[in-house]
Design a protein around this nucleic acid. Structure first.
Lengths: 199, 199
DNA sequence: CTCCTTTTCCTAGGGCTCCTAGGAATTCAC
DNA sequence: GTGAATTCCTAGGAGCCCTAGGAAAAGGAG
């Protein structure tokens, strides 16, 4: 009957694992309390509400993902860096689907600034050094990469590629090749006729 | 006290509107019953459970979106078609955020085949006629487009682009330009050195 | 060691949600 | 009209979120 040793940190960690098992939307205060051998009302001494639970999973996941990406990026440049970044991103989403989903929850400005969100955009920008793009093209390119990575992973997770013979891995490789080409041939002016180079 | 005229169709339509107002995750059987002036238990004569409600919103949204895209695509080709498709997609997501979210719910094989999901990939393939890609590159390109469009719209909806001076519209235009260039310079072999053409 | 404060956990309970069971009323088909 | 199907009802169980108020444990000061 002593204290069960509940902490905000351990709570967030348990919530993250639960999210990976049953999906973020099924992460419930009751279930967490059950896992800690505690009544659900007790958890409200540690968190304000169920939403805070998801926010904490989001912050945790953002930090984990940033660490992985940073490790993958070390010592690489150009397309190598692009591929390493992308694979770290996709692998994390596959290993931790619930955490990855949490990555997309809206954070209030304060929480967002304290999170690793900034590290993510910084690292994406670091990739682009190999392609020499100036602002605002750099921001546009960051958004292109973020959109394509997230979109692919999201569609893959939702099962969008399952009912088709072509493997997702092959398409992924081709998408990365294409992004590499696109970044190197970045259109400097919209509708630039110089860019139309069909063999 | 006579029949309130509840139908599966009207139920799905009301659920779709509710989703746009409060988000798909807050579409509740109780609230719908309230709007129809009926007890919540009564709705279970029309639907099996709350999940079916979301599935029906998904099917409805997929059909609506396919209609819009088809209309936007009529008489266009090449980059024109690409931009028309992309804008129809993004505009729909902005007008109907809840319906758009529903677009991503997993459908069982049977429901998926009866849905407009096929029309979507067919139309995406139609765009690619302007870029003459053979299989399996065509499938990869379909996935690239789907991923980038969905990813951009998804990140934009999640507020990912809000805390930055560069407008989302400008980036969107640039992303479309880049995709156009990428499709025309589709890499035929991974790491093809011929593709490195930095001015 | 004792006393006091803070933290952690408890019981109790209200409100909302989903869903089932069984019955009444309405509508439809013949 | 009569029987059958459909639509809607009341009643109720179970799970979830969260609040209020109190007991027990842990930690610090004297």
């Amino acid at each position: 009957m002593a204290h069960a040793g509940v902490t905000v940190e351990r709570l967030a960690e348990a919530a993250a694992e639960l999210a990976d098992e049953v999906g973020l939307e099924n992460v419930t205060v009751s279930e967490l309390a059950r896992r800690f051998g505690v009544k659900d009302a007790s958890l409200y001494s540690h968190i304000r509400n169920a939403h805070e639970l998801r926010v904490r999973v989001a912050v945790l996941a953002l930090a984990e993902l940033a660490d992985r990406v940073a490790a993958a990026l070390a010592g690489r440049a150009g397309k190598d860096a692009l591929v390493a970044f992308a694979n770290a991103y996709r692998d994390y989403a596959k290993e931790h689907p619930g955490r990855y989903t949490a990555t997309q929850v809206e954070l209030d400005l304060e929480t967002a600034k304290a999170s690793a969100a900034r590290r993510h955009s910084d690292m994406t920008r670091a990739i682009l050094r190999g392609y020499s793009l100036a602002e605002p093209d750099q921001t546009d390119a960051v958004r292109l990469l973020g959109s394509t990575f997230h979109g692919f992973v999201s569609l893959e997770q939702a099962g969008g590629f399952r009912h088709h013979p072509r493997g997702a891995d092959e398409s992924w490789g081709r998408v990365l090749d294409t992004l590499d080409v696109a970044l190197r041939n970045w259109p400097t002016h919209a509708g630039d006729p110089e860019a139309s180079r069909t063999p």
